[in-house]
């Protein structure tokens, strides 16, 4: 029974490959590496992952647990191994990649990262990084993932995702967009807030003209559990402004470590490091 099946599969092999080549012809016909036309399964990934997350809601009062990482960049081998490792975790609800999905700001790189991350058993969400804004990357990110500033509520926690890559705008004084961030932090309808972005405010790549306003807005938010970043490729947790606000930095994929973040109560949390 198996042998004829195998045989017919091998006979089918070449036509299948040819058909595959034809189907992917549109993607192969790249107009420019900066061209972001994408197949339908590589568009609006933020909205799609949020829909997947909404399909497995977290009851009020339940403990929140997610995987936190960043800077997938040019680390596709590591992405493959990270996915295998995360898929072995039980009780994690989603994963966050805090920017620098791509290395050169090109659409295909974002596809390549998604090629791996879509094998996760849990949804994943992203925020834009500085490398994702090189060239026409910002437009590619919008087409493939979605908005540069967005928020979502999961269980008792509101996640506020924002673009802090000020240097990519040549420090125009408008990044992060405090007119968007402030009302998000002032939303009193959810028990907890977590704000996530790529460049940490204490970094040289954060717009110095916005730094104080950002830190102050966070300080004034009584619901904020912590602020989270990537960009520096290594883990840290601390209070760089000595103002009671905790800042967490992720490992990059290449460091072959990620964090499992557990949040409960009003602002209780635990960070667990996992090597892969």
């Amino acid at each position: 029974m198996l042998l004829p099946l195998l045989f017919s599969y091998r006979r089918l092999g070449l036509p299948l490959v040819a058909a595959g080549a034809l189907l992917s012809g549109c993607e192969l016909l790249e107009f420019s590496p900066n061209d972001h036309r994408s197949p339908s399964d590589k568009q609006d990934l933020t909205a799609k992952n949020l829909a997947a997350l909404a399909a497995t809601p977290l009851p009020a009062g339940d403990t929140l647990r997610f995987v936190y990482t960043g800077d997938s960049q040019r680390f596709y081998n590591d992405a493959k191994d990270l996915v295998a490792s995360v898929n072995r975790q039980t009780g994690v609800q989603f994963m966050i990649v805090a920017g620098d999905i791509s290395d050169f700001g090109m659409a295909r790189e974002m596809w390549w990262v998604d090629d791996h991350l879509r094998n996760l058993k849990i949804p994943y969400l992203t925020v834009i990084g500085n490398h994702d804004q090189v060239g026409n990357g910002r437009e590619a990110y919008k087409a493939i993932f979605g908005p540069l500033n967005y928020s979502f509520v999961y269980g008792d926690t509101k996640f506020i995702m924002t673009d802090t890559n000020g240097r990519e705008y040549n420090f125009n004084g408008k990044i992060p967009d405090m007119n968007w961030v402030r009302p998000q932090l002032q939303d009193a309808s959810v028990r907890r807030h977590v704000i996530i972005s790529h460049v940490p405010p204490q970094d040289d790549d954060f717009d110095p003209a916005v730094r104080d306003a950002y830190a102050q807005a966070l300080r004034e938010d009584p619901r904020l559990v912590f602020e989270m970043n990537a960009h520096r490729h290594s883990f840290s947790v601390g209070q760089p402004f000595n103002d009671g606000v905790t800042y967490v930095n992720s490992y990059a994929f290449e460091r072959r470590k990620y964090l499992i973040v557990t949040v409960w109560g009003d602002k209780e949390f635990r960070l667990k490091e996992v090597s892969f």
Binding site: L28, L29, F75, Y76, N77, A79, R108
Partner: peptide, 14 residues
């Protein structure tokens, strides 16, 4: 740099 994580087809243009 990613022979396991990418395939040659991934990088082709036509």
């Amino acid at each position: 740099q990613n022979r396991r994580g990418l395939s040659p087809v991934d990088i082709l243009t036509l």
